[in-house]
Design a protein around this nucleic acid. Structure first.
Length: 557
RNA sequence: GGCCCGUUGGUCAAGCGGCUAAGACACCGCCCUUUCACGGCGGUAACGCGAGUUCGAUUCUCGCACGGGUCACCA
C-alpha cells in the first residue's frame, strides 16, 4: 500500500502554514559586487573560543572582507544540552579582542542584519517549512520514540555504548535497522501521534555507497567521495534540526558562498551535498581545513584539545600575548607565503596581505610554542613604545594591578620601553607582557630584588672595592664613553684587565676582565646578571637610586 | 573494521617531470660585544617503503606502511 505523502506531511506538520515561496521572499539574493564572498562563523555556544577555531574564522573573515563581501556570525545552538549560558556574547567579545568583527549576525546584545534570525534555536519554523516539503515529496520520514526511549538515547550510557560498537560486525545490522525504520504506514503514524509520541525526521538516502563522486574542495582539489547511503536525521524529536539540515537551509537562505570548516566535516560532505540536491539548491564552495595538532608525550600527534595549554584563547591574554601576535602566528600557519610577505612589508597591517586559498596547506600542523614566541618578539619589536605601553597597561590592570599603578608614571615607563626600540633593526627582548613585566621589574623599587648571586669564585673584597670606587667616581653627566672609561680605570688596581682583546689573548695574567667588573656593578644595580645596557639603566633609575643600591650591596657583602 | 584525508629536515613549509631540494623556527659553531640578548656569518638535518609510467621521478599511477579524521535524535 502506497503512502499519501502530501497527507503525511500535513499530519506531521499541521502548524506549518507558510509556503516556501513566502519564506524565500524574505531571503532575497544579496546585492553584492561581482566576486564578493559571503562567509560565516558558525560555532555552537559550548564555552570558550578554541585556538583551533581561529583558523576557519580568520580564513572566512579574510575571504569575505578582502572581496568586499559579508562576514556574519550564526550561532548553532541546536543542542540545548551542550549550551553554555552567555557563551555567545563572550565569543563575540573575544573575537573582537582579536580584531575580528562581523558585518551581521548575533551581537553582544542582540542581532543585526536582514537575514536572521541568526540563532538556529529561533529558526525552528523555517526548518519545518522545508522539512514538510521533503515529507510531501516522499524524501523524509518520521521515526517515533516514546519519552522513555528518548531519555535512553540521550543519556551518556547510550552514547558510550554507541561508541563501543564493533564496527566490523555492526555495519549490516545498522543497515537493517535503517531499512526497517523506513517501513511504516500512515495508520502507524496516526496512532503514534495520537499517543503523543515525538518523532525525529530522517531523510531517505538515495545514494549508492559503492559509487564515488567527484567533489571539489577549494584547498584540496577534486576529492572522490562515496555517495551518501545513510539516512540523515533532519529534525530531532524536539523539532530542532541537526547540524546537517541547519547547515543546508541556513547557508542557502543567508546566501553563504564559501563554507570554511574543519576537516572533520569531510566525511559528512556527501550528506550535505545530497540535501542540497534534494532541496534543488546550489551548494556553496567548501574549504575544509586541517586540524591543529599537538605533540603528545609519547611523540604521537593529538588534536589540540580543550585541556591543552594554548587551546583556550583566553590563555593568551593571561600569558600576555598581544592579540596581534596570535593573529600573526595564525596567518603564518594559514598562508605559506605570509612570512615572506611580512619580511618585505614589516610595517603593513596583516589585512593588507593578499590572502590566497591556494597557499593553504591541506596537511595538519603541530602547534609550536617556540615559533609563537619568535613571532611574538618580532611583532612587539615593531610596535611603537606608545602602543606597547597601552597594551601593557591593559594587561597589567587585569593581571598585575600593583604593576598597573606603577605604570601610571607614563614617562618613566616609556623610557624603559623605548630601550632599543625604533630604527631598522629594533631589539627583540620580549614577546609577551609577562616577559616585559619581568624585564621592567628592576626599574621599580617595589619589584627590585637581588635575584642573582655573584659567582662563588669572585672575591667579595674585590667586589666591595670595585663598587666603592665606582660609586665614588660616578658622575651622572658623563657620557657613555666617559662612564665606561671610569669602569676601565677601576680594573687595573684590582688586577682585572681593562681591555677585552688583551684579556682574551692572555687570560691567565689577570683575575678577570672589565666584563667581570661590569658584572659586579650590574648585579648591584639591577639585581641580575643580565640586563639592558647598564649605562642606560642607571640613567633611567637616576643617580640617587643607582648609587644607593650600590651602597646597599657594599653593606651586605 | 568500513570509508575519507594526509605523508619533504625536530617543527612550519617552498616545490608542481630534469633544482647543488628554498626559506622560517629550533639546535650547534664562529664573529660582534662591558653581561644577557640583539645582529651578522656559517653548519647539522628531509622527499615513509615497494612496484610501475618515463630518457629522467620529491613531483604522475598503483600497492603497502604510518598518521589523522569519521561512522549519534553532538556539532
Amino acid at each position: 500500500m502506497s503512502i499519501d505523502y502530501k497527507y503525511l506531511s500535513e499530519l506531521l506538520f499541521p502548524d506549518v502554514t507558510m509556503t516556501e515561496e513566502e519564506l524565500l521572499a524574505k531571503y532575497p539574493p544579496r546585492n553584492l559586487p561581482e566576486g564578493a564572498k559571503v562567509t560565516r562563523f558558525a560555532p555552537s555556544p559550548t564555552g570558550f573560543v578554541h585556538f583551533g577555531g581561529l583558523f576557519p574564522t580568520l580564513v572566512s573573515e579574510r575571504l569575505a572582507h578582502q572581496s568586499g563581501g559579508v562576514f556574519y556570525l550564526r550561532i548553532e545552538d541546536t543542542d540545548s544540552r551542550r549550551e553554555v549560558e552567555g557563551a555567545a556574547g563572550a565569543l563575540v567579545k573575544t573575537l573582537a579582542h582579536y580584531g575580528i568583527h562581523f558585518d551581521e549576525g548575533v551581537t553582544v546584545d542582540g542581532e543585526a542584519g536582514d537575514y536572521g534570525p541568526y540563532k538556529q534555536s529561533e529558526r525552528a519554523d523555517i526548518y519545518h517549512v522545508f522539512a514538510k516539503r521533503l515529507v510531501a515529496e516522499g524524501r523524509a520520514y518520521p521515526v517515533f520514540s516514546t519519552d522513555a526511549e528518548l531519555e535512553e538515547i540521550k543519556t551518556a550510557d547510550k552514547k558510550a555504548e554507541l561508541k563501543a560498537v564493533n564496527w566490523e560486525t555492526d555495519a549490516d545490522s545498522r543497515r537493517e535497522a535503517m531499512l526497517a525504520r523506513r517501513n511504516f504506514t500512515v495508520e502507524d503514524v496516526e496512532r503514534e501521534l495520537a499517543a503523543g509520541h515525538k518523532f525525529a525526521l530522517f531523510a531517505i538516502a538515495e545514494g549508492d555507497g559503492t559509487r564515488k563522486r567527484k567533489v571539489n574542495d577549494l584547498v584540496r582539489g577534486d576529492l572522490l567521495l562515496p555517495e551518501n547511503d545513510e539516512d540523515v536525521v533532519l529534525l530531532k524529536s524536539d523539532g530542532i534540526p541537526t547540524y546537517h539540515f541547519a547547515h543546508v537551509v541556513d547557508d542557502h537562505l543567508m546566501g553563504t558562498t564559501h563554507v570554511v570548516r574543519g576537516e572533520e566535516w569531510l566525511p559528512s560532505l556527501p550528506k550535505h551535498l545530497q540535501l542540497f540536491s534534494y532541496m534543488g539548491w546550489k551548494p556553496p564552495k567548501y574549504i575544509h581545513i586541517s586540524q591543529i595538532m599537538r605533540q603528545d608525550a609519547d611523540g604521537s600527534k593529538k588534536k589540540l584539545s580543550k585541556r591543552d595549554m594554548g587551546a583556550n584563547l583566553d590563555d593568551y591574554s593571561r600569558l600576555g600575548y598581544s592579540p596581534r601576535v596570535v593573529i600573526e602566528y595564525v596567518m603564518t600557519l594559514l598562508n605559506s607565503n605570509f612570512e615572506e610577505w611580512r619580511a618585505q612589508n614589516p610595517d603593513r597591517d596583516y589585512t593588507e596581505f593578499p590572502f590566497n586559498v591556494k597557499k593553504m596547506s591541506s596537511s595538519g600542523c603541530l602547534f609550536d610554542m617556540k615559533k609563537l614566541d619568535d613571532v611574538a618578539k618580532n611583532v612587539i619589536s615593531r610596535m611603537s613604545a606608545e602602543d606597547v605601553y597601552a597594551q601593557l597597561c591593559g594587561w597589567a590592570e587585569k593581571f598585575e594591578p600593583d604593576f598597573a599603578r606603577r605604570l601610571s608614571d607614563k614617562d618613566y615607563a616609556l623610557q624603559i620601553i623605548s630601550i632599543g626600540r625604533g630604527g631598522k633593526k629594533p631589539r627583540k627582548d620580549y614577546g609577551t607582557w609577562v616577559e616585559l613585566y619581568n624585564y621592567m621589574s628592576p626599574f621599580y623599587d617595589e619589584t627590585f630584588a637581588v635575584e642573582d648571586e655573584y659567582p662563588e669564585n669572585v672575591s667579595r673584597a674585590d667586589i666591595k672595592s670595585a663598587l666603592t670606587s665606582f660609586a665614588d667616581s660616578y658622575d651622572e653627566n658623563d657620557d657613555a664613553g666617559a662612564w665606561f672609561e671610569k669602569i676601565k680605570s677601576i680594573c687595573a688596581p684590582l688586577g682585572y684587565c681593562a681591555d677585552m682583546k688583551e684579556y682574551r689573548a692572555n687570560p691567565d695574567a689577570y683575575k678577570g676582565s672589565v666584563a667581570d667588573v661590569s658584572m659586579m656593578i650590574r648585579v648591584a644595580v639591577t639585581g641580575r646578571l643580565n640586563s639592558p645596557d647598564l649605562y642606560t639603566v642607571m640613567h633611567i633609575l637616576g643617580r640617587e637610586r643607582s648609587i644607593s643600591r650600590i651602597r646597599d650591596m657594599i653593606n651586605k657583602l
